[in-house]
Write a protein that binds this DNA or RNA. Structure first.
Lengths: 356, 356
DNA sequence: CTTTAGCACTCGGGGAGTTTGAGTGCTAAA
DNA sequence: TTTAGCACTCAAACTCCCCGAGTGCTAAAG
């Protein structure tokens, strides 16, 4: 059954007011808020209907109404106006997006912090890749006769390195041989495919090369592993204490505990949202996790490039300002996609050349 | 004035009991706890003296006594027995110290988390270097005609890399030239010494090389910069809610806000402790930061190698279990020092060789 | 001089009772 | 269908009072 215009107007007023004040709204207050030219008694009748239909709740008989999760849902789906960010706000975000370090982890971490600061809610951010990562190339750099740097690059164009110090001497040709060997034997393999079997074969081919193969490969495996179980960065968890619904320390504690279970967040919350575009809003009981049953989550996904995607999200009371949060989150997500979309090197290089 | 043995015994009992229960201790309870064969009245007299001397406090006239910061200080200095960790505990720490990734940032982050989990208090960890870092060597790896990887190694043997994609073509000899150039012009320089002046000279020497110099150098500068302003990792902030002294949300919030000001922690708390060995304990008002005036901090420093040091610390109520926390922290710090002290490569390499 | 028993006193915490006021639901009239 | 009016409800805030743990003081005993 479709609601009448007037009912919608009232529902909307209740939601918006409650988002601001966190207090039940009574019929009298609604008279003014809605601007409807009807008496409070009429509004009371409407409120009774809306309560009957499950859009509103009453903390106790003699209190005003507050939105139920169902009410929020209707509000988010139909009543909420797209919030436009102010110039000030977009400028702020744009500034913050000018991150110095472009290391993937750091950028994601920073993005999470930024969102948390922007919204005043706890936030999290992570990257996830749909396909299993593989190594694309190996390089070994001789530092001195007793140490070398291994550089591995994944198919997602992520580059990692590690310095190895050896108890024995090492020569350039030796390293070259190793490099070729690594590149022929292990490129394009996923983590599971790097079997001990394969290692043994390659090690044998390496001859007397000190088991260096296994060292570098196990480093590569660490890299692949950390990529598959991508880290979740949380930020601003203390913000939940700002909101009256978490004045009860017990509740705050539960939510915080949940937020520090990073793997759970990744699996159950963020990853399912990877492929949804735009902002996704999960209200109270719509959340799978028990700990989030009376909180809400807003998620947005962004493109990292090379098929990788990421998710940033915000957690807060069901009473959170969905319009604003969703707008900010989407804006940041877009910004990140653009950031990753542009080549690392702005074509400033050639421009700098004097001679044209 | 030196306290009598009996007074010390009483003070100690008060502190230890209060650490457990967070409740004021009365004279009757102390009769049992101390094992002294005197009446409660006698103890009351002693308590009055200790209060007079500033070692104890009374929340209100008709309550028992709790230790004052001065009392804690005496306890920590003279009365506290070195806590020995149980086998179970050392095993737990040793296990946790077997970290997979040996990337510096991650290790430090992990260490902080571990300590927090171990002690049930919020913890932080950071690395700091006394001397200004410089770049030790540059390497450039050609990936394909339009991209290359820059690898820089600092004097602290930290290696960082970055992938550059270019709008133009690139050749191996070109890269080699660049590498030599970079290594002659910029090695051994601190951040300030990498002046625009120097850059211009080097760029000029590079001839038509597309301003690549400045790209790589500015990456190097980022690395140096991030090394100088080393990150602070905090973990387990939600643990403060476990303790009754922070049931007051306002207090918890203040402390949490402080803990998220990572730069402040670094500057005012951790860095001063860099060169103190062993555990350092700061009780309540001994802290410089206003926000910590009624909390305590335990710090321990560890060696990273190459002259770099790090600090891990724990923040909690003044009532925290100093003996246990200090013991755990020292143990972890030692473990970290050892971890960094041993070469990256366990000499397992040669051992793996079949043919001897 | 120290220790002890005894006793009056203090003060926070918790429970019961009361008041207040915002807000409701219902009814009867417009 | 809307409105005015009115009785009713209930949480929150306040007051009052009791309880008991614990103190400080005094006077006597060691």
């Amino acid at each position: 059954m479709e609601l009448t215009e007037r009912k919608k107007k009232i529902l909307r007023a209740v939601v918006e007011r409650y988002i601001q004040t966190a207090e039940p709204i009574g019929s009298r207050a609604l008279q003014e808020l809605t601007g409807l030219n009807v008496s409070s008694a009429t509004i009371r009748n409407e409120l009774a209907d809306l309560t009957e239909l499950g859009y509103l709740e009453q903390p106790h008989t003699s209190a005003g109404r507050i939105p139920s999760p169902k009410g929020y849902r209707l509000y988010v789906n139909e009543l909420m106006e797209e919030q436009r960010l102010s110039l000030e706000e977009t400028r702020q975000i744009n500034d913050a997006l000018h991150l110095k370090m472009r290391e993937l982890d750091k950028v994601i971490d920073q993005a999470g912090r930024m969102v948390s600061q922007l919204t005043n809610y706890p936030a999290f951010a992570l990257a996830g890749n749909p396909k299993r990562p593989t190594i694309k190339r190996f390089d070994l750099i001789l530092v001195d006769s007793a140490s070398f740097i291994a550089v591995v690059m994944t198919d997602g164009n992520l580059v990692k390195n590690k310095l190895f110090r050896l108890p024995t001497d090492l020569s350039e040709p030796q390293l070259q041989l190793l490099t070729t060997l690594l590149n022929t034997a292990f490129v394009g393999k996923t983590l599971d495919q790097l079997t001990p079997e394969l290692m043994r074969v390659a090690e044998h081919a390496a001859g007397g090369s000190y088991g260096l193969i296994s060292l570098v490969v196990s480093f590569a495996m660490e890299v692949l592993d950390s990529l598959e179980n991508s880290a979740v960065y949380t930020a601003g968890t203390s913000h939940i204490l700002d909101h009256p619904e978490y004045q009860d320390v017990g509740k705050a504690q539960k939510l915080m505990a949940y937020l520090s279970e990073e793997q759970t967040i990744a699996q159950s919350l963020a990853l399912p949202a990877l492929n949804d575009d735009g902002a996704k809003i999960l209200i109270g009981p719509e959340n799978v996790a028990e700990e989030l049953k009376d909180s809400s989550v807003v998620l947005a996904s962004y493109d990292i490039g090379d098929g990788m995607k990421g998710v940033i999200g915000v957690v807060g009371p069901t009473r959170m300002d969905y319009a604003k949060v969703a707008a900010k989150l989407s804006y940041v997500a877009d910004g990140l996609s653009k950031l990753f979309g542009t080549p690392e090197l702005p074509p400033a290089g050639p421009a700098k050349e004097k001679e044209e």
